[in-house]
Design a protein around this nucleic acid. Sequence first.
DNA 1: TATATTTGCAACCAAAAGGTTTCATAAATG
DNA 2: CATTTATGAAACCTTTTGGTTGCAAATATA
Lengths: 112, 112
Amino acid sequence: MRRDVFQAIADPTRREILGMIAHKSLNINAVTEQFDVSRAAIYKHMKILTECGLLEIKQQGRERFCEGKFERLNEVSDWVAQYREFWEARFDSLEIYLEKLQKEKKDGKRKK
Amino acid sequence: MRRDVFQAIADPTRREILGMIAHKSLNINAVTEQFDVSRAAIYKHMKILTECGLLEIKQQGRERFCEGKFERLNEVSDWVAQYREFWEARFDSLEIYLEKLQKEKKDGKRKK
DNA sequence: TATATTTGCAACCAAAAGGTTTCATAAATG
DNA sequence: CATTTATGAAACCTTTTGGTTGCAAATATA
């Protein structure tokens, strides 16, 4: 069975899971509650995410907390980047976009 | 059937196809020659790429030339970008990376 | 200790994905 | 006009995917 990052993020449920645990690690039941599929289905998605390094599971008592590991997304980022020159406009404004992101980051920290 | 960019680029053959036609549009047979699957299989991949806007087919006589349309990759780019802060190191060096890219672009033009 | 909670995983299923062969059609060529 | 070339697409097949139910094991808790 193929198990790479591109395949992992192809499924919308898996992308949602990553979104949910990005800022706060959750146990498997907590994640399951957000969807209307069974725990087993969610568990399988998590296994796939784990197998390709996008998620890490840490046991704590009888619970398992899921934590996002986003480093591996650089594979996707790199792949997309090689085509960035083909949608030039966006490419040219990336520096501005970057500055905006940095600013937002600072503002976020201030609020906390 | 689901037909979004994430699903489209999940298949390695489809990613290869995009790579092949990025710089030079090719007809369907020319693309097929690069793989060891049937023309029909490649045609199906191309149909998927077309349906989600990553590829455009232009008829010219009895041939159809395939041309990459990479704008839609910004959907992927945006999705990944929201997690960039989680692999901080890369984020911090993005400006440098950008400069490098711009430089390479200029060098490329010079060579031609 | 008996019970409830949280999880791992097997067994099973329907639909989707990726592939094939085959045939039809349209355009270019001898 | 007959033939070759390039393609579109149907019919069919196998494997993968995403989902289910059910049960066992481990860890809290009453």
